[in-house]
């Protein structure tokens, strides 16, 4: 009963290997993977329940997972009482880890597919795990296109990684910030612009390479406000709803479908999600 595998409620202590700032609200935490998880496949899009010991637990998506080094990386935004406690932690301190939970993106079914990643702001955090997966398993997909929209230049995260992504094979990267800024010569406007046929910087895959959407999936993660404009744009180009995957958020406590907080209709976001297809989302009540 004291074995961690039997009792999914008990967090495992993990050491923080590194803590650093991404932007003014987000910090990244590099955590030593516990031994019993080293053999387990952690699928991009899954999440862990992280405990700030003594304060509480929060569900955080995996941002990067390195099976050889045995590390896992999370990004936490300073928005509430427990996340504030996380931001006060530093290297070599302990946190509690429970998981991995959730269904994750079905990356094994992406063989031969073009993957368009549409990330709004902090949505880039879980999508980054898909990118890392691709770089470690280059035959898993055909190619990826990363479309990232940040609120402003000071909100941009993963700056170093972005530089590398621009250089990788079978990978393209475009980004935008919401409003024009002094010193910014790149795109401005919402990230859904990349889905408009009239936009000069529109998605290559959706409009040039696979305009009949035979082989493409779109992965969308972002704040709730972004989904509306993205879905409108995808409707306009008649992109099939079963091929759009997104990540839902809801209040969670147990992470294993028992406490009842995260339910959305007959689905639990922690068990049947957090990844749902747009088609499935249309059949769920709007309670997320």
């Amino acid at each position: 009963m004291d074995n961690f595998q039997d009792n999914q409620y008990i967090p495992f202590p993990s050491v923080l290997l590194d803590v650093r700032e991404e932007n003014k609200t987000i910090k990244r935490f590099l955590v030593q993977l516990p031994d019993h998880l080293r053999q387990q496949k952690i699928i991009p899009g899954q999440f862990f329940q992280l405990s700030a010991i003594g304060y509480g637990e929060i569900p955080i998506s995996v941002s990067d997972f390195d099976p050889e080094a045995g590390t896992i990386m999370f990004c936490i935004a300073n928005t509430g009482s427990i996340t504030t406690k996380f931001h006060q932690l530093s290297k070599d301190q302990l946190i509690g880890l429970r998981g991995p939970f959730g269904n994750g993106f079905p990356v094994t079914s992406f063989l031969g597919k073009n993957i368009v990643l549409l990330a709004g702001g902090i949505g880039l955090v879980p999508l980054r795990s898909v990118v890392s997966y691709f770089f470690r398993n280059p035959d898993a997909f055909n190619k990826i296109e990363i479309l990232y929209g940040a609120k402003s230049t000071s909100d941009i995260i993963f700056r170093n990684e972005i530089k590398q992504w621009r250089l990788k094979p079978k990978t393209s990267f475009k980004m935008t910030i919401d409003n024009p800024e002094k010193g910014w010569s790149g795109n401005t406007g919402f990230v859904s612009n990349f889905l408009l046929s009239s936009y000069s910087e529109k998605s290559e895959i959706l409009f040039a390479e696979d305009p009949e959407f035979k082989n493409t999936k779109v992965l969308v993660v972002g704040p709730p406000a972004m989904y509306k404009s993205v879905f409108n744009a995808l409707s306009d180009i008649h992109f099939p709803d079963k091929e759009v995957l997104l990540s839902l958020e809801n209040r969670m406590k147990c992470g294993i479908g028992k406490c009842g907080h995260c339910n959305c209709g007959s689905k639990y976001v922690c068990l049947d999600g957090p990844i749902f297809s747009w088609f499935e989302l249309k059949n769920l009540p709007k309670e997320y």
């Binding site: 009963m1 004291d2 409620y9 008990i10 967090p11 202590p13 010991i53 302990l94 509690g96």
Partner: peptide, 16 residues
């Protein structure tokens, strides 16, 4: 009670 914790040692499940 699900478990006890010690800040320096993490969580110990309450013996069921």
């Amino acid at each position: 009670e699900l478990m006890t914790y010690d800040k320096n040692d993490s969580y110990t499940p309450t013996r069921i």
